[in-house]
Protein backbone atom coordinates (compact mmCIF):
# COMPACT_ATOMS: atom_id res chain seq x y z
CA UNK A 1 0.00 0.00 0.00
CA UNK A 2 2.93 2.38 0.65
CA UNK A 3 3.83 2.21 -3.02
CA UNK A 4 0.38 3.46 -3.97
CA UNK A 5 0.41 6.45 -1.59
CA UNK A 6 1.35 9.07 -4.26
CA UNK A 7 -1.36 7.74 -6.59
CA UNK A 8 -3.85 7.87 -3.75
CA UNK A 9 -2.93 11.49 -3.04
CA UNK A 10 -3.40 12.34 -6.72
CA UNK A 11 -6.99 11.08 -6.82
CA UNK A 12 -7.93 12.50 -3.40
CA UNK A 13 -11.52 11.77 -2.33
CA UNK A 14 -12.22 9.78 -5.51
CA UNK A 15 -9.58 7.22 -4.50
CA UNK A 16 -11.89 4.49 -3.08
CA UNK A 17 -13.86 4.55 -6.33
CA UNK A 18 -10.75 4.41 -8.49
CA UNK A 19 -9.23 1.64 -6.37
CA UNK A 20 -12.42 -0.47 -6.54
CA UNK A 21 -12.62 0.02 -10.30
CA UNK A 22 -8.98 -1.03 -10.63
CA UNK A 23 -9.72 -4.22 -8.67
CA UNK A 24 -12.79 -4.93 -10.80
CA UNK A 25 -10.71 -4.56 -13.97
CA UNK A 26 -8.07 -6.84 -12.45
CA UNK A 27 -10.74 -9.54 -12.10
CA UNK A 28 -12.76 -9.01 -15.29
CA UNK A 29 -9.88 -8.74 -17.76
CA UNK A 30 -8.28 -12.11 -16.91
CA UNK A 31 -11.78 -13.57 -16.81
CA UNK A 32 -12.49 -12.40 -20.36
CA UNK A 33 -9.16 -13.81 -21.56
CA UNK A 34 -10.01 -17.11 -19.83
CA UNK A 35 -13.39 -17.13 -21.56
CA UNK A 36 -11.74 -16.63 -24.94
CA UNK A 37 -9.26 -19.43 -24.34
CA UNK A 38 -11.94 -21.67 -22.81
CA UNK A 39 -13.71 -21.65 -26.18
CA UNK A 40 -10.39 -22.56 -27.78
CA UNK A 41 -9.78 -25.32 -25.22
CA UNK A 42 -13.29 -26.64 -25.84
CA UNK A 43 -12.71 -26.92 -29.58
CA UNK A 44 -9.34 -28.56 -29.06
CA UNK A 45 -10.52 -31.02 -26.38
CA UNK A 46 -13.60 -32.04 -28.32
CA UNK A 47 -11.45 -32.24 -31.45
CA UNK A 48 -9.03 -34.69 -29.86
CA UNK A 49 -11.90 -36.70 -28.37
CA UNK A 50 -13.31 -37.06 -31.87
CA UNK A 51 -9.87 -37.93 -33.33
CA UNK A 52 -9.32 -34.71 -35.25
CA UNK A 53 -7.03 -31.76 -34.67
CA UNK A 54 -9.33 -28.84 -33.91
CA UNK A 55 -8.38 -25.26 -34.89
CA UNK A 56 -4.68 -25.16 -35.80
CA UNK A 57 -4.32 -22.56 -38.55
CA UNK A 58 -4.48 -19.08 -36.95
CA UNK A 59 -1.19 -18.33 -35.19
CA UNK A 60 1.18 -20.93 -33.71
CA UNK A 61 -0.79 -24.14 -33.02
CA UNK A 62 -4.01 -22.18 -33.64
CA UNK A 63 -3.49 -20.14 -30.48
CA UNK A 64 -4.78 -16.92 -32.04
CA UNK A 65 -8.09 -18.51 -33.10
CA UNK A 66 -10.18 -16.92 -30.29
CA UNK A 67 -8.78 -13.48 -31.15
CA UNK A 68 -9.76 -14.00 -34.78
CA UNK A 69 -13.24 -15.14 -33.72
CA UNK A 70 -13.67 -12.05 -31.51
CA UNK A 71 -12.60 -9.72 -34.33
CA UNK A 72 -14.99 -11.40 -36.73
CA UNK A 73 -17.92 -11.12 -34.33
CA UNK A 74 -17.16 -7.47 -33.57
CA UNK A 75 -17.22 -6.46 -37.21
CA UNK A 76 -20.51 -8.19 -37.97
CA UNK A 77 -23.78 -6.31 -38.17
CA UNK A 78 -26.29 -6.56 -35.34
CA UNK A 79 -29.66 -7.25 -36.93
CA UNK A 80 -32.82 -6.41 -35.03
CA UNK A 81 -35.65 -8.49 -36.50
CA UNK A 82 -38.90 -6.88 -37.65
CA UNK A 83 -41.53 -7.00 -34.95
CA UNK A 84 -38.91 -7.40 -32.22
CA UNK A 85 -38.93 -5.11 -29.23
CA UNK A 86 -35.69 -3.18 -29.88
CA UNK A 87 -35.02 -2.05 -26.31
CA UNK A 88 -35.55 -5.46 -24.70
CA UNK A 89 -33.78 -7.15 -27.61
CA UNK A 90 -30.59 -5.20 -26.80
CA UNK A 91 -31.12 -5.40 -23.04
CA UNK A 92 -31.27 -9.21 -22.98
CA UNK A 93 -27.56 -9.94 -23.64
CA UNK A 94 -26.62 -7.29 -21.06
CA UNK A 95 -28.89 -8.94 -18.50
CA UNK A 96 -27.34 -12.31 -19.18
CA UNK A 97 -23.72 -11.20 -18.79
CA UNK A 98 -24.30 -8.94 -15.78
CA UNK A 99 -24.83 -11.80 -13.24
CA UNK A 100 -21.97 -13.81 -14.74
CA UNK A 101 -19.60 -10.94 -13.94
CA UNK A 102 -21.19 -9.49 -10.78
CA UNK A 103 -20.99 -12.79 -8.90
CA UNK A 104 -17.18 -12.63 -9.05
CA UNK A 105 -17.23 -9.84 -6.44
CA UNK A 106 -17.34 -12.34 -3.57
CA UNK A 107 -15.14 -15.12 -4.99
CA UNK A 108 -12.02 -15.48 -2.81
CA UNK A 109 -8.83 -16.26 -4.74
CA UNK A 110 -6.50 -16.56 -1.75
CA UNK A 111 -6.80 -15.72 1.94
CA UNK A 112 -7.99 -12.07 2.01
CA UNK A 113 -7.69 -11.69 -1.77
CA UNK A 114 -11.33 -10.96 -2.56
CA UNK A 115 -13.11 -7.90 -3.93
CA UNK A 116 -15.86 -7.81 -1.29
CA UNK A 117 -15.54 -10.02 1.78
CA UNK A 118 -19.24 -10.02 2.65
CA UNK A 119 -20.81 -12.19 5.33
CA UNK A 120 -23.71 -13.33 3.17
CA UNK A 121 -21.43 -14.17 0.22
CA UNK A 122 -23.03 -17.48 -0.62
CA UNK A 123 -26.54 -16.00 -0.59
CA UNK A 124 -25.31 -13.13 -2.76
CA UNK A 125 -23.94 -15.56 -5.33
CA UNK A 126 -27.21 -17.50 -5.41
CA UNK A 127 -29.31 -14.34 -5.74
CA UNK A 128 -27.15 -12.88 -8.50
CA UNK A 129 -26.89 -16.09 -10.51
CA UNK A 130 -30.66 -16.61 -10.26
CA UNK A 131 -31.06 -13.36 -12.22
CA UNK A 132 -29.21 -14.83 -15.18
CA UNK A 133 -32.40 -16.46 -16.44
CA UNK A 134 -33.88 -13.06 -17.30
CA UNK A 135 -31.40 -12.62 -20.12
CA UNK A 136 -32.65 -15.84 -21.68
CA UNK A 137 -36.36 -15.18 -21.10
CA UNK A 138 -36.27 -11.62 -22.40
CA UNK A 139 -34.17 -12.63 -25.40
CA UNK A 140 -36.71 -15.28 -26.31
CA UNK A 141 -39.68 -12.98 -25.90
CA UNK A 142 -38.21 -9.85 -27.49
CA UNK A 143 -37.00 -11.73 -30.58
CA UNK A 144 -40.61 -12.29 -31.70
CA UNK A 145 -39.70 -15.73 -33.02
CA UNK A 146 -41.20 -19.12 -32.26
CA UNK A 147 -37.91 -20.97 -31.91
CA UNK A 148 -36.43 -18.34 -29.63
CA UNK A 149 -39.58 -18.33 -27.51
CA UNK A 150 -39.64 -22.13 -27.14
CA UNK A 151 -35.97 -22.10 -26.17
CA UNK A 152 -36.50 -19.45 -23.55
CA UNK A 153 -39.47 -21.27 -22.00
CA UNK A 154 -37.50 -24.50 -21.78
CA UNK A 155 -34.56 -22.72 -20.27
CA UNK A 156 -36.65 -20.86 -17.69
CA UNK A 157 -38.30 -24.06 -16.44
CA UNK A 158 -34.98 -25.87 -16.33
CA UNK A 159 -33.06 -23.15 -14.49
CA UNK A 160 -35.77 -22.65 -11.88
CA UNK A 161 -35.99 -26.42 -11.23
CA UNK A 162 -32.27 -27.00 -10.86
CA UNK A 163 -31.81 -23.97 -8.64
CA UNK A 164 -33.73 -25.79 -5.91
CA UNK A 165 -31.46 -28.84 -5.96
CA UNK A 166 -28.46 -26.52 -6.07
CA UNK A 167 -29.76 -24.56 -3.08
CA UNK A 168 -30.23 -27.74 -1.05
CA UNK A 169 -26.71 -28.88 -1.92
CA UNK A 170 -25.47 -25.55 -0.59
CA UNK A 171 -27.37 -26.06 2.67
CA UNK A 172 -25.07 -29.03 3.24
CA UNK A 173 -22.05 -26.77 2.71
CA UNK A 174 -23.53 -24.32 5.23
CA UNK A 175 -23.91 -27.07 7.81
CA UNK A 176 -20.28 -28.03 7.34
CA UNK A 177 -18.86 -24.53 7.55
CA UNK A 178 -21.27 -22.65 9.86
CA UNK A 179 -20.89 -19.60 7.66
CA UNK A 180 -22.15 -17.96 4.48
CA UNK A 181 -18.82 -16.26 3.90
CA UNK A 182 -16.97 -17.95 1.03
CA UNK A 183 -13.50 -17.32 2.53
CA UNK A 184 -14.67 -18.85 5.80
CA UNK A 185 -16.07 -21.85 3.91
CA UNK A 186 -12.61 -22.50 2.44
CA UNK A 187 -10.85 -21.96 5.79
CA UNK A 188 -13.15 -24.50 7.45
CA UNK A 189 -12.01 -27.17 4.99
CA UNK A 190 -8.39 -26.76 6.08
CA UNK A 191 -7.60 -29.99 7.92
CA UNK A 192 -4.74 -32.34 8.57
CA UNK A 193 -6.06 -34.87 6.04
CA UNK A 194 -5.28 -32.82 2.94
CA UNK A 195 -7.78 -33.45 0.21
CA UNK A 196 -9.79 -35.82 2.40
CA UNK A 197 -10.72 -33.02 4.79
CA UNK A 198 -12.49 -31.06 2.07
CA UNK A 199 -16.25 -30.91 1.84
CA UNK A 200 -16.57 -33.29 -1.08
CA UNK A 201 -15.97 -36.34 1.14
CA UNK A 202 -18.75 -35.89 3.72
CA UNK A 203 -21.02 -34.23 1.16
CA UNK A 204 -20.27 -36.57 -1.73
CA UNK A 205 -23.89 -36.95 -3.02
CA UNK A 206 -24.38 -33.19 -2.77
CA UNK A 207 -21.09 -32.62 -4.58
CA UNK A 208 -22.36 -34.70 -7.50
CA UNK A 209 -25.78 -32.99 -7.40
CA UNK A 210 -24.13 -29.58 -7.40
CA UNK A 211 -21.79 -30.44 -10.25
CA UNK A 212 -24.57 -31.81 -12.45
CA UNK A 213 -26.98 -29.01 -11.54
CA UNK A 214 -24.19 -26.59 -12.46
CA UNK A 215 -24.09 -28.10 -15.94
CA UNK A 216 -27.88 -27.76 -16.16
CA UNK A 217 -27.85 -24.17 -14.84
CA UNK A 218 -25.36 -23.07 -17.48
CA UNK A 219 -27.45 -24.75 -20.22
CA UNK A 220 -24.54 -26.90 -21.29
CA UNK A 221 -24.73 -30.29 -22.98
CA UNK A 222 -26.28 -32.74 -22.11
CA UNK A 223 -28.80 -30.25 -20.65
CA UNK A 224 -28.74 -27.83 -23.59
CA UNK A 225 -32.38 -28.23 -24.65
CA UNK A 226 -32.63 -24.42 -24.51
CA UNK A 227 -30.42 -24.36 -27.60
CA UNK A 228 -31.29 -27.77 -29.04
CA UNK A 229 -29.83 -27.23 -32.52
CA UNK A 230 -31.60 -30.22 -34.00
CA UNK A 231 -35.07 -29.25 -32.74
CA UNK A 232 -35.32 -25.49 -32.34
CA UNK A 233 -32.34 -24.29 -34.42
CA UNK A 234 -30.41 -22.44 -31.69
CA UNK A 235 -33.05 -21.63 -29.12
CA UNK A 236 -33.21 -18.26 -27.47
CA UNK A 237 -30.37 -16.60 -29.39
CA UNK A 238 -31.40 -17.68 -32.88
CA UNK A 239 -32.20 -14.09 -33.93
CA UNK A 240 -29.01 -12.58 -32.56
CA UNK A 241 -25.97 -11.76 -34.65
CA UNK A 242 -22.61 -10.09 -34.25
CA UNK A 243 -21.58 -8.78 -30.86
CA UNK A 244 -25.04 -9.28 -29.29
CA UNK A 245 -24.69 -12.99 -30.01
CA UNK A 246 -21.09 -12.93 -28.76
CA UNK A 247 -22.21 -11.46 -25.44
CA UNK A 248 -24.53 -14.45 -24.89
CA UNK A 249 -21.58 -16.69 -25.60
CA UNK A 250 -19.35 -14.74 -23.21
CA UNK A 251 -22.03 -15.05 -20.53
CA UNK A 252 -22.34 -18.82 -21.02
CA UNK A 253 -18.61 -19.42 -20.72
CA UNK A 254 -18.18 -16.93 -17.86
CA UNK A 255 -20.97 -18.79 -16.07
CA UNK A 256 -19.16 -22.09 -16.65
CA UNK A 257 -16.01 -20.67 -15.07
CA UNK A 258 -18.08 -19.24 -12.22
CA UNK A 259 -19.83 -22.53 -11.46
CA UNK A 260 -16.48 -24.36 -11.61
CA UNK A 261 -14.92 -21.85 -9.21
CA UNK A 262 -17.84 -22.21 -6.82
CA UNK A 263 -17.52 -26.01 -6.96
CA UNK A 264 -13.80 -25.67 -6.27
CA UNK A 265 -14.38 -23.28 -3.37
CA UNK A 266 -17.26 -25.06 -1.70
CA UNK A 267 -16.40 -28.72 -2.22
CA UNK A 268 -12.76 -28.91 -3.31
CA UNK A 269 -11.07 -26.67 -0.77
CA UNK A 270 -10.51 -23.51 -2.83
CA UNK A 271 -6.89 -22.40 -2.59
CA UNK A 272 -5.91 -25.17 -0.11
CA UNK A 273 -3.26 -27.63 -1.18
CA UNK A 274 -4.41 -31.25 -1.56
CA UNK A 275 -1.29 -32.74 0.03
CA UNK A 276 -0.40 -31.74 3.61
CA UNK A 277 3.00 -30.06 3.55
CA UNK A 278 2.73 -28.35 0.16
CA UNK A 279 1.96 -24.62 0.41
CA UNK A 280 -1.58 -23.49 -0.35
CA UNK A 281 -1.81 -21.00 -3.18
CA UNK A 282 -3.93 -19.47 -5.90
CA UNK A 283 -2.45 -21.98 -8.34
CA UNK A 284 -4.32 -24.82 -6.64
CA UNK A 285 -7.60 -22.96 -7.18
CA UNK A 286 -6.71 -22.51 -10.85
CA UNK A 287 -5.92 -26.20 -11.20
CA UNK A 288 -9.18 -27.26 -9.55
CA UNK A 289 -11.23 -24.87 -11.69
CA UNK A 290 -9.48 -26.19 -14.80
CA UNK A 291 -10.23 -29.77 -13.78
CA UNK A 292 -13.94 -29.03 -13.30
CA UNK A 293 -14.05 -27.12 -16.59
CA UNK A 294 -12.49 -30.10 -18.34
CA UNK A 295 -15.38 -32.21 -17.01
CA UNK A 296 -17.81 -29.73 -18.61
CA UNK A 297 -16.10 -30.18 -22.00
CA UNK A 298 -15.85 -33.92 -21.50
CA UNK A 299 -19.61 -34.18 -20.79
CA UNK A 300 -20.35 -32.27 -23.97
CA UNK A 301 -18.26 -34.60 -26.08
CA UNK A 302 -19.62 -37.74 -24.42
CA UNK A 303 -23.33 -37.56 -23.66
CA UNK A 304 -26.31 -37.23 -25.98
CA UNK A 305 -28.83 -34.51 -25.18
CA UNK A 306 -31.40 -35.31 -22.48
CA UNK A 307 -35.04 -35.47 -23.43
CA UNK A 308 -36.99 -32.64 -21.87
CA UNK A 309 -39.16 -34.70 -19.48
CA UNK A 310 -36.09 -36.66 -18.38
CA UNK A 311 -34.40 -33.41 -17.38
CA UNK A 312 -37.38 -32.43 -15.25
CA UNK A 313 -37.59 -35.87 -13.70
CA UNK A 314 -33.89 -35.86 -12.81
CA UNK A 315 -34.16 -32.46 -11.17
CA UNK A 316 -37.34 -32.90 -9.20
CA UNK A 317 -37.58 -36.62 -8.51
CA UNK A 318 -33.94 -37.58 -8.12
CA UNK A 319 -31.77 -34.65 -7.07
CA UNK A 320 -34.09 -32.95 -4.58
CA UNK A 321 -34.86 -36.19 -2.65
CA UNK A 322 -31.16 -37.14 -2.66
CA UNK A 323 -30.14 -33.81 -1.16
CA UNK A 324 -32.98 -33.89 1.40
CA UNK A 325 -32.02 -37.37 2.60
CA UNK A 326 -28.36 -36.46 2.77
CA UNK A 327 -29.18 -33.34 4.81
CA UNK A 328 -30.78 -35.61 7.43
CA UNK A 329 -27.83 -38.03 7.27
CA UNK A 330 -25.28 -35.21 7.72
CA UNK A 331 -27.35 -33.60 10.48
CA UNK A 332 -27.60 -36.85 12.42
CA UNK A 333 -24.00 -37.83 11.76
CA UNK A 334 -22.69 -34.50 13.04
CA UNK A 335 -24.36 -35.13 16.41
CA UNK A 336 -22.54 -38.44 16.92
CA UNK A 337 -18.95 -38.81 18.17
CA UNK A 338 -18.15 -40.62 14.90
CA UNK A 339 -17.86 -37.31 13.02
CA UNK A 340 -14.24 -37.08 11.84
CA UNK A 341 -14.28 -33.60 10.23
Amino acid sequence: MELLAPVEAFFGPAWPLVWSLAKIVAIVLPLMVSVAYLTFAERKVIGYMQVRLGPNRVGPKGLLQPIADALKLMTKEIIVPTGANPFLFVLAPVLSIMPALAAWAVIPFEPDVVLADVNAGLLYVMAITSMGVYGVIIAGWASNSKYAFLGSLRSAAQIVSYEIAMGFALVGVLMMSHSLNLSEIVRRQDGSLGLLSWNWVPLFPMFLVYLISGVAETNRAPFDVAEGESEIVAGFHVEYSGMAFAVFFLAEYANMILVSSLTAIMFLGGWLSPIPGLPSSFLWLLLKVAAVLFCFLWFRATFPRYRYDQIMRLGWKVFIPVTLVWLLVIGGWMQTPLWPW
Partner: peptide
Protein backbone atom coordinates in the same frame (compact mmCIF):
# COMPACT_ATOMS: atom_id res chain seq x y z
CA UNK B 1 -28.67 -7.68 3.94
CA UNK B 2 -30.20 -11.10 4.53
CA UNK B 3 -33.72 -9.87 3.80
CA UNK B 4 -32.53 -7.86 0.80
CA UNK B 5 -30.75 -10.82 -0.77
CA UNK B 6 -33.61 -13.17 0.07
CA UNK B 7 -36.00 -10.76 -1.67
CA UNK B 8 -33.92 -10.89 -4.84
CA UNK B 9 -33.41 -14.66 -4.57
CA UNK B 10 -37.06 -15.57 -3.99
CA UNK B 11 -39.07 -12.91 -5.78
CA UNK B 12 -36.77 -11.92 -8.63
CA UNK B 13 -35.07 -15.28 -9.08
CA UNK B 14 -38.07 -17.59 -8.80
CA UNK B 15 -41.52 -16.02 -8.42
CA UNK B 16 -41.22 -13.42 -11.17
CA UNK B 17 -39.65 -15.93 -13.55
CA UNK B 18 -42.72 -18.15 -13.24
CA UNK B 19 -44.92 -15.07 -13.47
CA UNK B 20 -43.27 -14.00 -16.73
CA UNK B 21 -43.54 -17.59 -17.90
CA UNK B 22 -47.33 -17.35 -17.66
CA UNK B 23 -47.69 -13.76 -18.84
CA UNK B 24 -45.59 -14.37 -21.96
CA UNK B 25 -47.82 -17.22 -23.02
Amino acid sequence: EFLAIALVLVYVGAVMVLFLFVVMM
